[in-house]
Amino acid sequence: MSLKSSSATIDETRPISISLTSSFNNNNNINNNNINNNVSAMNTLNDKFEAIEAGDSISAKKHTGYSQENQKGNYSGTAGGAGALGASAGTGAATGDTESNNDELLFFNYNEYSVYDYFKLDSSKISLRNEQPLVITHFPNPYVEMGQDQFNKTRIVRIPRRYDVIGDAYPKFSNVLPGYEKAALIDPYLASTNNTECLSGKLIVSSDSNEDRKFIIRGKHRDQFFGVSSVSPLSNYLNLKEFQEIINQINAYLKKIYDAQNYSNIFWGILDTLTLSLSSHFFNNVMNDRLQAKELEKYVSELNNNGILKERGIKLISPRRSGYLSLDFQIPRPIL
């Protein structure tokens, strides 16, 4: 089943990669990442609604199917469902796919997802089966108390973490705004056909189409406003250069905190072992990683209190508070 590149409209949804047992997924060729028409997407949605009506929890159903497969150690199911555009990278061999190994994995913001049931702006009725999915790019704020004022007024935009570090030695965050990644979704009502190419089914956006990366509200879901592209409301507050400055600085601090192979680290490790782990208690504040962590905290608080973020009215949550899992920016709730 090849991808129809010539008629690949921008209406195609993001490749949804399903790594579930085939009884759940109607498509047998799981590794065909780009869903050609909306029928298959509808089918999965049908299952979802049926399950809700039948009363059993769909999350439990999916979860057991997925975990059973994982426990069998069956690479085929999981690798066949590997996400991102063109992602097979040779791991889908067991499903009998013939994707070539030349497809490169592209990075995308895995925090976002699509919904089909939302209110369009010009109607007051919720429509369950819209054609164009709404892309959720901002999330509720877990750093303030739930149900309070601040919770309702602020939202969080998450910058994902990249894992292309050798040995996953230190955390590194993606240094482009959400919406500028290589595999980001773009708004079909804005993008002109000059700027997009369709190469064997993959959507590649050339880099000088940055002008149409704006956050434009198209629908309302669960009382919040979203657009149909991967661009988040953070683009209203920071442009790409300022953002990259902040991110590169934070990445530099993180690298210094977690760097494993310099000599002082080896020295402290050996000393720690020989002194019955007591030297790490006494010499904590002299060791490099604590000093760098304090520098990072100082930088973040300076940005929040005196710097560019305060002027724009947004806030950066300290990376340590969010566990270095994602970099969170707190923005005011987007309204019409």
Partner: peptide, 24 residues
């Protein structure tokens, strides 16, 4: 509870997948 979503009762389909990202 760092990466919570609005659809708290049913997670979106994309959150059940295994995501492959480029490595080193």
């Amino acid at each position: 509870n760092i990466h919570i979503t609005d659809d708290s009762r049913q997670l979106p389909i994309e959150y059940f997948n295994i995501i492959s990202l480029p490595g080193y």
